Amino acid sequence: MKASLLMLLLSVLVLSTLVASIGTEGVGAVPDRARLLASKRVHNLYLVEGQDIVVQYSLYNIGTAPALNVQLTDAGFSSENFEIAAGQLQVKFDRIAPGANVTHSIVVRPTKSGLFNFTAAEVSYLPSEDSVDVQVGFTSEPGQGGVISQRDYDKKFSPHVFDWIIFALLLVPALLVHFLMWRDTSSKYISAPKPTVGKGSKKN
């Protein structure tokens, strides 16, 4: 009986010592690692053929360690449908600190109208300074967007200045004819002598 009680006390003592060592030495604690949240956003309200489209990428580190060797690559803009007006489709950031964010913008110009799928960009990085495994993720996906032709856009949103000028030029002859007729008529009445009223003779 005493032996079993002694073994129970020794087991409790060993277990408490192990728990204390885990708490003090940090065994089993989650290591510091970077974690990136990435977004891709199209800023234009209307996508028009031949006009600039601004695309912005945002990277935010919500982890507890800096993200190293961060590379952002977007393969969603093919040369058949878009031309790059400004910026680069592949960019590198050496370090993104915990709680920090970075942004990158490009300007693309669609060469044809139609429906296009704006896919996600790829993000790769090292989650910690001692890590050798590259973490790969993706940005948010804007989805499908319609690029309208320049002609349709002008029909809907153009101020039609040229059309108004043509309308005014066509309206001038009609107004001029009426003005000349009015001036001719009024000049006849103005230049005509006023009739004089003579006094009648009195009879004796």
Rank of each mutant, 00 (worst) to 15 (best):
M1H: 11
A3W: 12
S4R: 06
M7H: 13
L8Q: 10
L10P: 02
L10K: 03
S11Q: 06
S11I: 09
V14Y: 08
L15R: 02
S21P: 05
E25M: 10
G26V: 01
V30N: 09
R33T: 10
L37A: 11
L37D: 15
N44R: 04
L45M: 13
L45W: 08
L47W: 15
D52C: 07
V54C: 00
V55L: 02
V55Y: 01
Q56F: 01
Q56H: 07
S58H: 12
Y60W: 05
I62A: 05
G63K: 01
G63S: 00
L68G: 01
V70M: 06
Q71Y: 09
D74W: 08
F77M: 05
S78V: 02
S79N: 08
N81I: 04
L89S: 03
V91W: 08
G99K: 00
N101I: 02
N101A: 14
T103N: 08
S113G: 07
T119K: 07
A121I: 03
V123H: 03
S124Q: 08
D130V: 15
S131Q: 06
V136T: 14
T139P: 06
E141F: 07
E141G: 07
G143F: 09
G145K: 13
G145D: 00
D152Y: 12
D154E: 13
F157I: 01
S158P: 12
D163N: 07
D163L: 09
I165E: 13
F167Q: 15
F167N: 14
L169E: 11
V172E: 08
P173Q: 09
L175R: 06
L176D: 13
W182T: 10
D184K: 15
D184H: 15
S186R: 15
K188G: 04
Y189C: 06
P193G: 03
P195E: 11
P195Y: 06
T196C: 06
V197F: 11
V197H: 07
K199V: 13
G200T: 14
K203E: 09
N204E: 13
